[in-house]
Design a protein around this nucleic acid. Structure first.
Lengths: 124, 124
DNA sequence: AAGATATACCTTGCACTATGAGGTATGGCA
DNA sequence: TGCCATACCTCATAGTGCAAGGTATATCTT
């Protein structure tokens, strides 16, 4: 499986979780499963990654939690987006567009491997 | 100016620098300028960001440095890619493709704001 | 009844990264 | 002379992702 390096994902886990919660309330354990299904074969996040991010987001009032007894008899902590969470998700999407633009412009894709034009100040 | 948050860029600065050096050898001060020109109005990296990354890359043998006296009488520390640096850049491009795929699939773009299909396990 | 498995939560410690805010030194120019 | 741009470097800090642990309970298997 192609794995993402830790750094590559940095700062984007929050956006991923916000996007998942946009589909409707969910809880930690299910979020981990959903994420790994949605990004099948590419991404694999553990609970040790997701739970701390959820608490961080709760502190920032992006999501709020409510305990509920599920049909299977388990206690689950359901999270849902706050208005601020929705706004943050929108901002995250804009940030992603910007990053994507920069990376495409400067780094280019894996396919476009022809040499870039010379940079002012560079020497041969 | 739309600024990228610190975290959004995390792990990608190395790829940016590798890509710039792919165009030919350059030195810290010029790299900072080039980067800010190439990503005009979007990205603004300081020297405090770039120099440490260059040292890190040098430690990892991705680039090698050579002092040279420039035409303007200044000493400049020119960096160029090693073979390992070229391979790492190629790997970074693949990583970017993967991340891009995941983010597009899960988070979606800023334009596609229609509701996502329900996730298994989510509640209304 | 006993054991295993899946569900579901949580915590700690570590390594790594980006960044601002500093500092040093020198060449060119008014 | 003073000032600016060039060009290098360092330090402290905050924020991240993650592995590796731990607890508890419901369900399924033997």
């Amino acid at each position: 499986m192609t794995r993402l390096s830790k750094q590559a994902l940095d700062g984007n886990v929050e956006a991923l979780l916000l996007a998942i919660l946009e589909s409707g309330p969910s809880y930690g354990y299910a979020i981990v499963k959903d994420l790994n299904v949605r990004a099948e074969g590419i991404l694999r996040l553990g609970e040790g990654t997701v739970y701390p991010v959820l608490y961080r987001m709760e502190d920032k009032k992006l999501i709020i939690a409510k305990w509920r007894l599920a049909e299977n008899g388990r206690q689950r902590k359901y999270y849902r987006l706050t208005p601020k969470g929705h706004r943050t998700l929108a901002a995250s999407r804009r940030q992603w567009e910007v990053l994507s633009t920069v990376m495409t412009k400067v780094v280019g894709s894996a396919e476009r491997l022809s040499p870039q034009p010379k940079v002012k100040g560079a020497v041969s």
